[in-house]
Design a protein around this nucleic acid. Structure first.
Lengths: 152, 152
DNA sequence: GAGTCTATCGCAACATGTTGCAATAAGCCA
DNA sequence: TGGCTTATTGCAACATGTTGCGATAGACTC
């Protein structure tokens, strides 16, 4: 821990600067939420974050957590997507943009990083004209081993 | 209406046959839900279906509707995916398989039919080894006109 | 430091789904 | 037809988010 870039410190600090630059306010609750998010590994559901925040500050309420999360998205510090079960999953912006693919055979979920996704996004653009968002790329299908098992 | 194939009749009938073939039971509620689904255009959220079913049969409850919808999926008569806002959207199997792409600029949502999707699915397979599911393909990005507006 | 403006908070109610459980009734067999 | 088995229902409680509103408290000015 405590490496050179110290991401936990910089997240809260940069967030505070960004919030205040927009004429908005920096509060205790936002500090707590920023800390919790920085301490997570960058993948957490809304409910998990609410629970973690309440553990750090029992007076916090879900509405505050979700509203702050919305603010983080607006400011570009986080993104969220809906997983297979429809639950929200939040990512820190520090985590490099990536998509997900979920296997409905074995339930495995793997990440798709930018390099791997490049030809997929290119195909989407050619086919539809849309510039798709890697962070919202959430696919379902069958992984290679389940396909092999099904073929037998 | 009342065309040659008469899909409304056949859905309930075929569903009943499939349910009974599995040793399961055919009930009033399932008949109502099948009728409602057949009368929809093949795109309805869970909440909409619950409301429609309750309009047809006020004694029906949400749990019954959702459980029946799960059954329809198991039997291959319907599929569902989660839209941009995380709400569930159900499709009848009669509607040809298709994906969706949502523009986060203007909010437009367009369908991606099988032909258009083919190169996308091929790219996904090449990049990840996964055989992706067209019905669960739910993308977000920027549509051509929003991209043009942003470029200016 | 005091006063003002208003963004943010916490609460409570709501929306959409999910789950456990006891009561009901569909389908089967004698 | 009558009785039995158990899938299905309806209820109620819960889980996860969202929204409206009055109270609180940041931040700014004087």
């Amino acid at each position: 821990m405590a490496n050179a870039s110290d991401p936990k410190e910089t997240l809260a600090t940069r967030l505070q600067a960004a919030v205040q630059a927009r004429g908005q306010r920096w509060t205790e609750q936002r500090q707590v939420i920023a800390d919790v998010l920085a301490a997570s590994d960058g993948h957490a559901t809304g409910a998990e974050l609410v629970e973690l925040v309440r553990a750090a500050d029992p007076s916090a309420t879900p509405s505050t957590v979700y509203r702050t999360l919305d603010l983080l998205e607006e400011l570009g510090f986080a993104t969220h997507h809906h997983g297979v079960d429809g639950r929200e999953t939040y990512h820190l912006e520090e985590v490099v943009a990536h998509g997900h693919v979920h296997c409905h055979g074995c339930g495995a979920e793997v990440e798709i990083d930018a390099d791997v996704a490049k030809p997929i996004l290119a195909a989407i653009e050619r086919a539809t004209g849309y510039a798709a968002d890697l962070d919202h790329l959430s696919l379902q299908g069958r992984c290679p081993s389940c396909r092999a098992a099904a073929a037998r």
